[in-house]
Amino acid sequence: MLTGIQALLLDISGVIYQGSQPVEGAVEVIEKARQKGLTVRFLTNTASKSSAQIMQELRSMGVNIEPQELFTAPRAACELIDERGLRPYCILPDAIAAKFECYPPEQADAVLLGDAVDGLSYASLNQAFRLCQAGAPLIAIGMNRYYMSDEGLQLDAGPFVKALEWAARTEAQVMGKPGRAFFHRAVASTGYQAHECLMVGDDIDADVLGALDAGIPAVLVRTGKYCPEDEQKLTSGGRVIDSLAHLFD
């Protein structure tokens, strides 16, 4: 499975930990990968935690991670907004809202949407719809359908992005998985080519099929949000293992 692979692109939630508990053997495999000389990158669409919080959680579980190894969808979205000089109306969780300069609807010229949980109300989504209907671009922090928490599966931002796309007859620019631009950015940081990297994820659509679409070999793990029917969606270049702990088996 790892023949010719020089870099690992690892999803975090559902692959390295589930809820607040680490996946058994995952930390040891990451360390083994480093010992073998593999470059490691951590990719996440999570917007409910800051980058500092994500790194602190991983370090508390024994994962060695440096800031340049973490690629988050909020960071990619922030860079896009700065490059275009946009004034976004934001529907974001409190953990990352401070990273963005957000504007009231009457001043906004874009919509930025993430997994804001209770912030995804009818009122906020209706404001976003009106802006998109008037021509404002819709920027999505990831397109995940759902995620796994300690309480079980939870709706992610993807379904709400799809609703706005359909209602406003627009198409979101996805600054996170499964967007090609996000994967290409992560690959470029490794110094290798896409076919020399391996994506490992628990989300068949955002992690695995998204990576394959970007030309990156991918592995689906049977942890996190994995469902047995996910395996039927696998295309050429995709593999399945029980968990990250089995990557070198």
Rank of each mutant, 00 (worst) to 15 (best):
G191F: 08
E165D: 08
Y103K: 06
T44V: 07
V23E: 02
L2R: 10
P105W: 07
A95L: 08
L8Y: 03
F182P: 09
L212W: 12
H184R: 13
F42C: 10
G179F: 08
I216W: 02
S60M: 13
R59V: 12
K49S: 14
G158N: 14
S48L: 01
G237D: 06
L112K: 01
V29T: 13
I5H: 10
T190S: 13
L198W: 12
A245D: 12
K99T: 09
V174N: 13
P217N: 06
I91W: 10
S51N: 15
A140S: 14
M143V: 01
I241G: 00
Y89K: 05
A95V: 08
Q56R: 15
F129W: 13
A211Y: 07
Y192V: 08
R169F: 12
A73C: 12
D156K: 12
F248K: 08
L92H: 04
G4N: 05
D205K: 06
D203H: 13
K177Y: 11
Q21R: 14
A245I: 01
G215M: 13
E101M: 02
E231W: 01
A95I: 06
R59D: 01
M1W: 06
Q6L: 12
L244I: 13
G19I: 11
M175R: 14
M175W: 12
F42L: 14
M148A: 11
I141N: 01
L153P: 11
D205L: 09
L153Y: 12
I204Y: 00
I204K: 02
V174T: 14
P104N: 10
L209P: 06
T170I: 13
H246R: 15
I91E: 10
E31F: 05
C227K: 11
G210E: 05
V174Y: 11
I81K: 07
G237E: 02
D109E: 05
S124W: 04
V219S: 11
G238A: 15
G37Q: 09
E69L: 03
A7E: 09
S60R: 15
G201I: 00
K177R: 11
C132R: 00
Q173K: 08
S236I: 07
Q173F: 11
V15G: 07
R130S: 10
L9F: 13
L209N: 11
Y89G: 08
I54L: 15
Q68N: 10
M1L: 13
V40D: 06
R84L: 13
A123H: 11
